[in-house]
């Protein structure tokens, strides 16, 4: 017996085991790839998702976001290594769905059903579903239980879907453009409900959206994807110190270019430079560095990254 095997057979204290679980990645990808004919949707990406995080996966249309989520959800076969809660999603989707919930970019609830029928079904097949929680959430909306889903507005359908997700004791929630097509009020309410009533330290959320500015404040981590590759992966708190934007008169442009900007744009005789990890004191000599929004960082990163370039 090897020393390693002997060590692993020793009893582990419950507190240590719990601590290990709390830090172990719930999603682990190594060399994850997906090819559709000549099109590379995912190009051998590596990443981990830790528990208790809210990860925003951000990219342009066709960047590979949905493919990434579909792989995590076991909806597509893939190359490379991918585990979710230690399981291979492509082989163990059904078992995985006890711990994973997802809302796709389109209204996926079966239109011929009523809300009550959907609850009946989920209650019958999902061991983690609590009907009272779903009913309680729905009672605060105007969604009728007896109306067929095809008669509901898109906002109501999303609220109904959210009520199901809220009532399932899942550890990972995957959201693929969940608020697409909803008005601003529904969108705000959707994310507020997620944060206030769903999210806690034991749960993880992976979300993709084009409305980056609306979810920026709730994200703990971001992942930018372009052409199937991860071009940025960071904690949102770190982005503030890492990225900076400086606007100067055109006469200072050359000096700033020497500092290696990530992105440069010009307007009305002024030049704006975006820096990744630059010395703030050096920038301060030209102009006060400005805090950048996630959308601004995304645009700068996407503009900069040449096709095929990796992180």
């Amino acid at each position: 017996m090897t020393r390693q095997a002997t060590a692993s057979s020793e009893p582990v204290a419950p507190a240590e085991a719990a601590a290990a679980d709390a830090t172990r990645p719930i999603v682990r990808a190594r060399g994850l790839a997906k090819q559709y004919g000549d099109f590379t949707a995912l190009d051998h990406v590596d990443f981990d998702v830790a528990p208790g995080r809210i990860l925003g996966v951000i990219g342009a249309n066709g960047a590979g976001k949905t493919t990434l989520l579909n792989a995590i959800l076991g909806l597509i076969p893939h190359e490379g290594e991918l585990t979710v809660f230690g399981r291979d999603p492509a082989r163990e989707r059904a078992a995985l769905m006890r711990d994973v919930c997802f809302i796709a970019d389109v209204a996926t609830l079966p239109k011929w059903m009523t809300a009550a029928q959907v609850f009946d079904y989920v209650e019958g097949v999902h061991p983690g579903f609590d009907r009272t929680v779903a009913l309680d959430f729905l009672s605060r909306t105007s969604v009728p239980l007896s109306k067929k889903i095809k008669k509901l507005s898109k906002g109501m359908t999303t609220q109904l879907h959210l009520s199901i997700v809220m009532a399932i004791d899942a550890r990972l929630l995957v959201l693929d453009e969940p608020t697409l097509g909803l008005d601003i009020l529904f969108r705000k309410q959707f994310y507020r409900s997620l944060l206030e009533e769903y999210f806690d330290d034991s749960r993880t959320i992976i979300v993709t959206t084009h409305q980056v500015e609306e979810i920026e404040h709730i994200l703990t981590d971001v992942m930018f994807i372009r052409d199937g590759r991860i071009v940025l992966e960071a904690e949102t708190e770190a982005l503030e110190t890492r990225f900076a934007q400086v606007s100067v008169d055109a006469c200072h442009a050359d000096a700033l270019r020497d500092l290696g900007p990530l992105y440069e744009s010009g307007s009305l005789g002024r030049k704006t430079f975006v820096f990744d990890g630059a010395d703030r004191a050096a920038l301060q000599r030209f102009a006060p560095p400005q805090r950048m929004s996630l959308a601004d960082i995304f645009v700068a990163t996407m503009q900069d990254a040449p096709k095929g370039d990796s992180q």
């Binding site: 959800l73 909806l75 989707r93 059904a94 078992a95 995985l96 769905m97 006890r98 994973v100 919930c101 997802f102 796709a104 389109v106 209204a107 996926t108 609830l109 079966p110 239109k111 079904y121 989920v122 097949v125 999902h126 061991p127 879907h161």
Partner: peptide
């Protein structure tokens, strides 16, 4: 359910494709 994309909802449940 492929046409109206509701298969994604069925697949979000712990029910195997065989079942």
């Amino acid at each position: 359910d492929r046409r109206d994309r509701s298969f994604l909802f069925w697949k979000s449940m712990p029910v195997s494709d065989t079942e």
